[in-house]
Amino acid sequence: MSLSDSPILAETGAMTRFAGRFLREGLRPRYELPEFLRQCYVIGYQSLPLVGITGFIMGLVLTLQSHPTMAQFGAESWIPTMVSLTIIREMGPIITALIFAGKIGSSIGAELGSMRVTEQIDAMEVSGTNPFKYLVVTRVLATTLMLPLLTILADALALYASYLGINTKGVTTLALFTNNVLSGLTFGDVLPAVLKTFFFGFAIGLIGCYKGYHANKGTEGVGQAANTAVVVSSLVIFLLDLLAVQITGLLGLI
């Protein structure tokens, strides 16, 4: 490899090309449906306990933390609205994506990295399978589609935990809580929040796959792939979040 001026730019360019390859290969048959479903199961369903617990605790803690301050202003009735907005707009997507990056991004990076290092990817190619389709496309698609679902379920659990949290300090009925939550919500809150999680999921899957797929030889390469996958995808999640807030602001949805 010749020297390039900026390793970050070179990496970005390579990753963009990787994403382009994903789109090209993903659209062309043949489609690896059974493997895609298996990845959805592994990536989505098996992350549910972790993401669910995180979401539940997030909702509970947010409620209990904001309670004293809100009570000081006599605005306890605003807690459901405030907590739900916080969770649905920002905390749910971000926390879920970060947890997801930690769990899935690293596992994809390590798995593909070790497959690369032990020539399993070559073996796949030799046995007549396009490893990019079989390994990368299925995983990236699975993360793209599963993260929004996980985020929604985490949001739901967080709101339920918030309801429980409010009930530890006072009494609220589920109906009132729901009405309070809905009164503060608009499509402009829900849709961008859901939409951006698709991009988060895509970024996590893509970066994990890229790092694993291009892992260096040796066991060190595997660890490095897993590690950088998590670091880079966490960073990219925040960058995308910044971008998302700018775009929703431009569209007047804030």
């Binding site: 070790s114 497959m115 032990t118 020539e119 399993q120 070559d122 073996a123 796949m124 190619e125 030799v126 046995s127 007549g128 396009n130």
Partner: peptide, 18 residues
């Protein structure tokens, strides 16, 4: 891919899917 089906390749590291 069709040609490769007629070839066998034994990898140095075996490359078994673990």
């Amino acid at each position: 891919d069709q040609l490769r089906a007629r070839l066998g390749f034994l990898f140095q590291s075996n490359a078994l899917y673990d």
